[in-house]
Nucleic acid binder design. Sequence first.
DNA 1: GACCCACTATACAGATCGGTATACTGTTGA
DNA 2: TCAACAGTATACCGATCTGTATAGTGGGTC
Lengths: 191, 191
Amino acid sequence: MTPAARRVLEAAARLFYERGIHAVGVDLIAAEAGVTKKTLYDRFGSKEQIVVEYLADRDERWRAFLAQCLDAAPPVSAARVLAVFDASRAWSAKNSSKGCSMVNAHAEISDPSHPAYPIITRQKQWMLTLFTDLAGDITPYGADHLGQTLMLLHEGALVAHGLNIFADPISHAREQAQALLAATGNSAAKR
Amino acid sequence: MTPAARRVLEAAARLFYERGIHAVGVDLIAAEAGVTKKTLYDRFGSKEQIVVEYLADRDERWRAFLAQCLDAAPPVSAARVLAVFDASRAWSAKNSSKGCSMVNAHAEISDPSHPAYPIITRQKQWMLTLFTDLAGDITPYGADHLGQTLMLLHEGALVAHGLNIFADPISHAREQAQALLAATGNSAAKR
DNA sequence: GACCCACTATACAGATCGGTATACTGTTGA
DNA sequence: TCAACAGTATACCGATCTGTATAGTGGGTC
């Protein structure tokens, strides 16, 4: 990726996230990137493609950040679940003050045949699988169920964070996850 | 409200929710409502005003529906909390297959000075207050905390429903809420 | 020196955006 | 009977939308 292309993607990512995808035109993206529209279209071909790369890049960066956080976490499954919430809190504080970019993009992209659509759904499926896998290490027989509950808490926290419904919802969700894991661990120990 | 104005608002509500606010133009709204743009502007004055009335009307209808569900619920606080989740599931099945309209609108309306902005935030605050009040009837000392947890579960379920992450997330959230209320009730009884 | 490539500058095409203007029709109620 | 009002039909405004065309510049590399 050329330097100009990188600037385009950075400007587009910021504008798309802050103002919405449909609300941002290519002229503005080019101007903010300090690039002509010619260069923009030479590198990306269409606005749609910029949207696709914006979401794909953001997903990739989030997964890399999360992987790094999980590597630093103790190899205990419960602690690793909590590490996901910690990662989300740190990520949101820096990059996601308006909530989840995938959820926000989904609000604007209605057509399932849009090339960005699978990126959104795949990202959420991946998160659910992550929670389910971690849950499976704790309670093999209720992994799906526990994974879904963690997913609900996590998604709810991201929305609450984006809408500023109350203070520090991600920490609250983390706390609830911890209580849930403790209860699950106890009942599993009883079995 | 004149019949034509009503048709405009109905068409706008459907189009805004399904395709997004910025993606829908006034020409399309007028055409779908079987109305000329002159009539549309005579009644509403601006697209922004249509957006405002769309969100306000949706919020009002949801609150009326919820009130009706709560009236039919037993006067036991725990059952009333579950009735909220039941109401959400019924409402979502009919009107909200793409998730919460307030959350989706928030993704497109970034400017806090936009006249639709307070409608969105007020709606979420109202839901949080509702959960907190119901929680207060169960465990007076942890009302805020329990209310926030219920809010997280509820918001998470709406997002998961809209993105179709897994099957019937609202029922799952209801079940989690039930378990949470039972555990809270037990610990409160112990006190 | 010749070539390639990323990039700039500018202009424009065709469509659509939100919004307005003019002229007219049909119904209702004082 | 007449005025008010809801609504239709159509044409238009300036601005902005995505996308393209032409022409030219500067820095590398063979």
